[in-house]
Nucleic acid binder design. Structure first.
Length: 471
RNA sequence: GGCCCUAUCGUCUAACGGUUAGGACAUCGGCUUUUCAAGCCGGUAAUCCGGGUUCGAUUCCCGGUAGGGUCACCA
């Protein structure tokens, strides 16, 4: 790489970040980090109508949570500051003047209603609407009160290269006299993102594939400005559950921070997102962030959209949970437990039953952990194992109590309890004649961890007390 | 509708024109087992259709079909 790679993530603060936005940010970031380049965060807030209060803060929060850091941006500054478009209006005006001077920009003389009329007429006639067909012969001087339109210098078919999609081309109807500066004085995306990308020295423009059809417009601006082209990188969409639509809220596109609330590990989310549209050379699926940076390769980005799959995300999350150290795991799980349940001994039991830390909430709500902390309530007939007579169950339990009493409290481990209970159970017709009632007496649940580990966690006294209560 | 893009198991995907079309998730079955969870082992499952090109197409070309995107004073 002779030239330093410079990429950017340029969200508009019009709502919450969802997985599609995040993946675009991720790929741009991975590329910059892989080549030791620069990653810029730029806020594109030129649509004051749609701007949502707090959206910028939300974006920063999301990126911080997942660990995507930026070298230049609104909060950290940089040599191209400011990084918020609404603070760069003079710059866009300067570039607009350049186009005006070249005779390539003019004020739109029509009212909105008139333009809408043209559009409707074209639609009625079944042909594409092109503003340039209504381009006035003579332009007035632009006074800033009317929208400033670009005058496409040459109507032609563009051919260009995209790092993901390869050689692309478009018909000339993709070219039109689009608006550069709106009547409110703010520039349009079509214009200002190009100005900024040029000014900031962006080498790779990474964005969703919905922009492919706008690229001829962009090319005509680059050309009019006499600017060098960056590398274009369009990304396939992430599709909703049915696989047929670009992921939308209805399809389950969530605020990224919800994944935090649900207890996903940020590294796992990035891992899954990376794989949603990209595949390494080998079959590796579990990646640390550093491994992603090392392996990521734009040439291996898919062209087709990928359907979102919560199951796979959950699997990847669990794999990342498994990589946590015992201490990290304990700290994390304890965070999700109410104070009265913070017993480190139940951590392994919780861990093997969850794929996200947030699942702990569900376990607590369903009362699946209550028996560790208080004597369960149950009806005695539930102690019966299949068709075993009640008397037999009781005598088995009595035997277990007797033997367990002999087991010293200091070595009352799952392993030793198992030895003792198996000693009795193996002599029975079915081991369930003992193990089921013991487990049930201890947990009061149809489904629970095995009786040995429960006994260890409860300790000798509590275990015996619960067994005693059962007979 | 015009323009553009895409097409391998249910899903994410692998396969410099030559592979028994590979892996993973999910699913199913088995093992383990007192139940659950976990774990281990195994199975089912795909090249959209039709034409070319070629000794040979998942792969290249054309057409169809299907899906997606886009045609704003939104980004």
């Amino acid at each position: 790489m002779e030239q330093k790679v410079v990429t950017r993530f340029a969200p508009s603060p019009t709502g919450f970040m969802h997985v599609g936005n995040l993946r675009t940010a991720l790929y741009a970031w991975l590329l910059a980090r892989k080549y030791k380049g620069i990653f810029i965060l730029r806020i594109e807030d030129t649509d004051k109508e749609r701007e949502v209060e707090g959206a910028t803060e939300h974006i920063l929060k999301v990126l911080n949570w997942v660990g995507i850091n930026w070298d230049e941006g609104p909060d950290v500054g940089g040599s191209h500051a400011p990084y918020v478009q609404s603070e760069r209006l003079d710059l866009y005006k300067k570039y607009a003047e350049i186009l005006i001077d070249k005779g390539l920009a003019y004020p739109d003389p029509y009212t909105t209603e008139e333009v809408d009329g043209f559009r409707e007429k074209a639609e009625l006639e079944g042909r594409p609407f092109l503003f340039r067909e209504h381009r006035p012969e003579n332009f007035e001087k632009w006074d800033g009160t009317k929208p400033l339109r670009f005058k496409v210098p040459e109507i032609k078919n563009y051919h260009w290269h995209d790092l993901v999609y390869g050689d692309l081309s478009a018909g000339s109807e993709a070219l039109d006299d689009f608006i550069l500066i709106k009547s409110d004085g703010f520039p349009t995306y079509n214009f200002c993102h190009i100005v900024d990308d040029i000014e900031m020295g962006i080498t790779h423009v990474i964005r969703g594939q919905e922009y492919i059809s706008s690229i001829p417009k962009f090319l005509s601006i680059y050309e009019a400005l006499g600017a060098d082209l960056p590398s274009f990188v369009c990304l396939p969409h992430i599709m909703g559950k049915n696989g047929k639509n670009k992921l939308s809220k209805r399809d389950g596109a969530k605020d990224i921070l919800e994944y935090k609330v649900e207890g996903y590990l940020p590294e796992a989310l990035l891992n899954y997102l990376a794989l949603q549209g990209w595949h390494p050379k080998d079959d590796q699926e579990i990646f640390t962030v550093d491994e992603l940076i090392k392996s990521f390769d734009v040439n291996r980005v898919q062209k087709a959209g990928a359907q979102w799959d919560d199951d796979k995300l959950n699997w990847i999350n669990k794999e990342h949970m498994k990589k946590l150290s015992a201490d990290e795991l304990q700290d994390e799980i304890l965070k999700w437990l109410p104070e009265k349940m913070q017993n480190p001994k139940i951590i392994p039991i919780i861990f093997e039953r969850i794929t996200r830390f947030g699942d702990i909430k569900g376990m607590i709500e369903k009362g699946e952990l209550d028996f560790f902390f208080k004597q369960p309530e149950y009806s005695k007939e539930k102690l019966i194992f299949k068709n075993t007579p009640a008397e037999k169950i009781l005598s088995n339990l009595e035997q277990a109590i007797k033997k367990l009493k002999d087991l010293d409290g200091s070595i009352f481990t799952a392993e030793n309890v198992k030895k003792v209970l198996m000693g009795i159970a193996e002599g029975l017709e079915s081991k369930g004649e003992l193990l089921h009632p013991v487990r049930f007496a201890l947990s009061g649940l149809d489904k629970s961890p095995d009786p040995f580990i429960i006994a260890e966690i409860l300790g000798k006294n509590e275990t015996l007390s619960r067994l005693q209560k059962a007979i």
